[in-house]
Design a protein around this nucleic acid. Structure first.
Length: 488
RNA sequence: GCGACGGUCGUCCAGUUUGGUCUAGGACAUCAGAUUGCCAAUCUGGUAACCCGGGUUCAAAUCCCGGCCGUCGCACCA
């Protein structure tokens, strides 16, 4: 059974990921490290993302700061909207989201942005008590999910970014000019974001410090259906989950039937689906779920979550948000910069709208591991069926025995390949044991150097999933590996 | 953040009820040597742990208190 526990166990045993600072007893929840194997998988995932999304669509990529000034988050709305009013019980310490709690108890609609004084007044007026123990509340306070940092000796107020996209927004003007941009322009970034989660849980699934890969598509809102390259993806099958029912539909039909608002949104959602299908996720266990109004982020006008089914239920991997001009208009207003650009197709000035694909990398890695985990009961083995592009090791190189010159021959082949391919040399233990160890970390191939190698310069290549073996020439190894890696 | 339960080698578990025999044991994994040589073979030897801090006691893995972490439930999830 592929469960969270079995994947977690493998991750700990094989160095995929593990808790941060674990040798100290005051290690904090919500922080995890990628070990050597996990780092390779993560890097491979990001490289595949670059290949299948950025290069395919000629996107540009930046790498921005993680600490950003206060004004950025005034403009983005995070200082207001990212802050929850909290009621804390004096007696048992239970905390409640103040606005929702008051609404729930009194039936009154309470705006989220109510001041602390007004909240305390309502609490007194209705004589609200703690739901757990009937205790009285402290004065209401605010909890901000952003990590605040102090810069320099004057302790200038700044924040760790809670989403990577803000750097793309604030850099937009310069990027557009220096890169001779034209709408639609997709700008991508991979990096860390930070959120002070109240209850981080389940290792990579809810972290306080986590990786995002975000793509922000700047577009002319009047030309969302003027997108010739949509032709390339119009037949892509998408699973749309709307109003509690799933439908499998082509990108073109989805636009025609109004399930997706326009070609631009459909185009990028199609690219995203194509990318994930290459990571080894089981696509029949994924869907784009349309968010209802009360689920949407405060900046989104249309929102789909790309979700994957795991042993814990459906998990959000990617937020696909049509953010309209929310971000650029706010940044333009607060920074007093003009962020309009010219659309040369009709020489009009526009403030671009933004459609974003905001991917959670850590969750994606976990989901790929879980979907790849396979217990082969017949052969009594655990196999991680990672695709070659994601696997931390592409091929293991094993001398069948260490005598008769086989060790030296194997080391020679290893040296020949190691600069160009992720290979792994191993001569310890029986050959079967080495195969087992290799497939447990998802390596799809093994090359075995045997006595015949010494006579005719061929090796066996063993396929992880079928356990079948073939002989290939040593001089052909690179060609065979290239074919595998570069397969479409 | 609240509540319940839990935390012992890399992993899984025994030991805690009833403090002493625990100098903490086993299995798997791992390392070295021997032997074998195409699917986790065998033998020998080794490395390796009581979450942290305080308390009770002649004596603490074991009892008590606090912290941290984990699982689950509630709440939260921009």
């Amino acid at each position: 059974m592929k469960t969270y526990e079995t994947v977690m166990k493998l991750a700990l045993e094989r160095g995929f990921y593990f808790p941060s600072c674990e040798i100290y007893s005051d290690a904090l929840a919500g922080f995890w490290e990628y070990g050597p194997t996990g780092t390779k998988i993560k890097n491979n995932f990001i490289e595949l993302w670059r290949r299948e999304l950025l290069r395919r669509d000629d996107m540009i990529e930046i790498d921005g700061s993680q600490i950003m000034s206060r004004s950025v988050f005034v403009a983005s709305g995070h200082l207001d909207n990212f802050t929850d009013p909290i009621l804390k019980c004096k007696n048992c310490g239970s905390t409640f989201r103040a606005d929702r709690y008051i609404t729930e108890k009194t039936g009154k609609d309470v705006p989220e942005l109510l001041s602390g004084n007004e909240i305390d007044k309502l609490v007194n007026q209705y004589n609200l008590k703690c739901a757990s123990c009937k205790g009285t509340f402290h004065e209401s306070s605010r909890f901000n999910m952003m990590f605040k940092v102090e810069i320099g000796p004057s302790k200038e107020e700044a924040y760790l970014r809670p989403e990577t996209c803000q750097t793309i927004f604030v850099d937009f003007s310069r990027i557009f000019k220096t890169m001779r941009g034209r709408l639609p322009l997709a700008v991508a970034q991979v990096g860390k974001s930070f959120r002070n989660e109240i209850a981080p849980r389940q290792s990579l699934l809810r972290l306080r410090e986590f990786y995002q890969a975000e793509i922000e598509v700047f577009c002319n809102p009047n030309r969302l259906n003027d997108l010739p390259k949509f032709e390339q993806v119009k037949d892509t099958r998408l699973t749309l989950f709307i109003d509690n029912s799933a439908r499998d539909i082509s990108a073109q039909e989805a636009v025609e039937q109004g399930l997706l608002p326009n070609k631009l949104v459909a185009y990028y959602m199609s690219l995203l689906a194509m990318f994930y299908s290459r990571t080894g996720l089981s696509m029949e266990r994924t869907r784009f779920r349309k968010l209802s109004d009360d689920e949407k982020a405060f900046y989104a006008s249309t929102a789909f979550d790309f979700e994957v089914e795991t042993s814990n239920g459906w998990l959000e991997l990617v937020a696909c948000n049509y953010r309209s001009d929310y971000d650029l208009s706010k940044h333009a207003a607060i920074s007093k910069q003009n962020l309009n650009v010219i659309d040369p197709s009709n020489n009009t000035k526009v403030l671009p709208h933004i459609f974003e694909l905001s991917m959670g990398i850590d969750r994606s890695i976990y989901s790929i591991l879980e979907h790849s985990y396979y217990e082969d009961l017949e052969s009594d083995r655990v196999v991680l069926k990672l695709v070659p592009q994601i696997a931390p090791i592409l091929v293991g190189i094993f001398p069948l025995v260490t005598k008769d010159g086989l060790r030296e021959k194997a080391q020679e082949i290893h040296a020949m390949l190691k600069l160009d391919y992720p290979v792994f040399y191993d001569e310890s233990g029986s050959i079967g044991r080495r195969y087992r160890r290799l497939e447990e970390v998802g390596a799809p191939f093994a090359l075995t150097i045997d006595n015949q190698t010494m006579n005719d310069d061929t090796v066996t290549i063993r396929y992880r999933d079928s356990m079948k073996q073939e002989r290939i020439k040593v001089s052909d190894i690179a060609k065979v590996l290239d074919t595998i890696i570069k397969s479409k």
